[in-house]
Amino acid sequence: MSRITARFAKLKAENRAGLVTYVTAGDPNPDVSFEILKGLPKAGADLIELGMPFTDPMADGPSVQAAGQRALKAGITMDKTFDLVRRFRAQTGDQETPVLLMGYYNMIYQRGAERFCKDAAAAGVDGFIIVDLPPEEAGELKPHAAKAGLDTVLLTAPTTDAQRLPAILAYASGFIYFVSILGITGTKSASEETVKSHVARLRSQTALPIGVGFGIKTPDQAAAVARHADAAVVGSAIVDRVKAGLDDKGQPKPDLLPGVFAYIRALADGVRGARV
């Protein structure tokens, strides 16, 4: 059983949804990024999405774009991203919290899908969320990911109709990521009613857990999603807390880590209290 599947099984046993936290690898620099990563489970993250910075993040809003630029400027590379995960597993001893790499396919394609999957698995990565890899193109990644024991979490959107969904489900493992709005990360938010109806629609088609993301900014919004989905994904709002912890020269202030962790704790409390 993969770490992702095991984690959702545990959440189900606890009768609660999970909190998936997105941070950008190397933001604001590789050292502070590692401190953030290390502290996420203790702050309440049930699963971790680690963004692979890309120069041209076409599905991301201003917050995640800026985070990627900070990280690239501070010298993040794919090797250093794998190293962050390797050190996370080694130094925290955490062998249960799943870490997913999120980003764009060119990072994988340049290394070669086979080698990328081997390197990722060796570092302690559990799966991928690749924004620009719809099922039409997922065939060249899936066999290598499966061989390396990595889950491929595919995205569904409000525009994904019943005809199309089976093609996505054929490639999906770990969980299904429902993009709750039409748009880029960190912009609009979906209503609880919308989330509820889409989650119900997805549940009728798949037994996979369902994570919902894009536009969740507050503990209340996270709780609303957690009442219906198996996990709430928060990204841009966390990345904004990282930015808020930087001084006007872009250097981390002492309150960066406490600020980020306090916010995640509030989100986690929202998620954990949702079904009580």
Binding site: M58, D132, E137, T159, T160, R164, I168, V179
Partner: peptide
């Protein structure tokens, strides 16, 4: 029919766009 010229081309876009591109 899937837009490939040899290994080139294709449809590497976010799922939100895919149904509309089809």
């Amino acid at each position: 029919e899937r837009g490939h010229f040899g290994i080139f081309g294709g449809r590497y876009v976010a799922e939100t766009l895919m149904p509309l591109i089809l």
